[in-house]
Design a protein around this nucleic acid. Sequence first.
DNA 1: GTAGGATTAAAACATTCGTTTGATCCAGCG
DNA 2: CGCTGGATCAAACGAATGTTTTAATCCTAC
Lengths: 240, 240
Amino acid sequence: MVGEVIAIGAVRGPAATKDRILDAAEALFMEHGYEATSLRAITSAADANLAAVNYHFGSKEELFQAILTRRLDPMNQERVALLDTLEQEAGNAPVDCERILAAMIIPALHLARDPARGGSNFLRLLGRAYADPAPFLRHFLSEHYAVMIGRFKTAFGRALPQLSRRELSWRLHFIMGALSYTLAGTDALKLIAEITPAKHRDDETLLHRLAPFLLAGLQSPPTDSGDDASPSEGDTRLAR
Amino acid sequence: MVGEVIAIGAVRGPAATKDRILDAAEALFMEHGYEATSLRAITSAADANLAAVNYHFGSKEELFQAILTRRLDPMNQERVALLDTLEQEAGNAPVDCERILAAMIIPALHLARDPARGGSNFLRLLGRAYADPAPFLRHFLSEHYAVMIGRFKTAFGRALPQLSRRELSWRLHFIMGALSYTLAGTDALKLIAEITPAKHRDDETLLHRLAPFLLAGLQSPPTDSGDDASPSEGDTRLAR
DNA sequence: GTAGGATTAAAACATTCGTTTGATCCAGCG
DNA sequence: CGCTGGATCAAACGAATGTTTTAATCCTAC
């Protein structure tokens, strides 16, 4: 609100460097990972001074958290808002399992489609953050995911009353795994799986294929009581 | 073969330091990640000299690849061997989808259960390597996974002839994602999902729950032709 | 027009990194 | 014994890291 009327040339806006650092750091963290990206590479790509990161964000860790917060919080808020709408429409009845899953996936899809909000680059960064062992990242993620996951777990619990709470937790875990892995690891096994160039507009087809896959797993019969989990049971010996 | 009869005290065996370095590095890479683990921390934990890593392995990258190879190649060979047995038993008929999936999962379970072969620590390390953007890691993984993935893809293709090759690739991708994420990321979202201590003997229950989930997704109707992918289709608007 | 806080700039800070070097040890063998 | 070659060791290498400091500069507000 302070220096809103500046815009001297074409580059400098209000707090321009801060945003330029965020954008450049997001791209570089995505490409090389957190540890392998130096502050010098970031500030150099952002056309900023080396000290600017510590001035604006305090530290490298806080910069990374700022990057995550900028995209993640709106996405999770959109998820919860979608779920709110669904539950409001359904009244007292439980919301369809399929729609709940859609409420989880659609915001991620929107984010992946919007280059102005980081696009798929950010989702790859996020998926990599899941697997990162850094303590400050795990604290951050569990804090910023707790409310959303809680909301969706109770919603799924009402849609699938035959599942125990433990079994539901597992399936939600699998869903988050396949989702984040798919959105993030477009590189790792892509060559192996001979999947198309991925730049096309695969975001659409990707989630069109992922959603039915996850839905089928989510709606499969419970394995808690009885052993008739899988259709053609027998000597699968999955438990060794 | 040379110094087989040494065993002076109790510590020094043949090439003892090389193995101690592998073990210590595996544990540390698992705990802190590749970039965040220094050679000094490794050699210190292994009671070896700093230069020992470069002497025995050449570089830090080659050490990491040696760690992966030591566990990964036997596991993938076990997978292929299991699939060989299944196909031999089935003769010309296609193998059950469920058994193929079991052939993928069981070797991972065996590895996770065997502390002498790295146990679940290694699987967490492996899952993290999937998400790592380092080029040498991606080259390594795609090389060491190519044959196994290829074998399983054709096996699944015969078991699920209604699926196009593209759709099959996607579903295999989802399976690898959920599997590696589940085996690796026992930390990330565990707190959120309120899943049990995980140290118990959850490896068993984990895969008992994962396999039916993946099987249901794998056997769900194809989405290629027609839009009747999901049971209660309608306004899910998953494609936005 | 000038004071004063916010921002940028250049330089140096102290560590830490992976790697290399040359000396030293020690079993094996003629 | 003398020598050879693999293994271990302490020490140092140069480069790169995140962070801090100090001064210069910018721009709004009075």
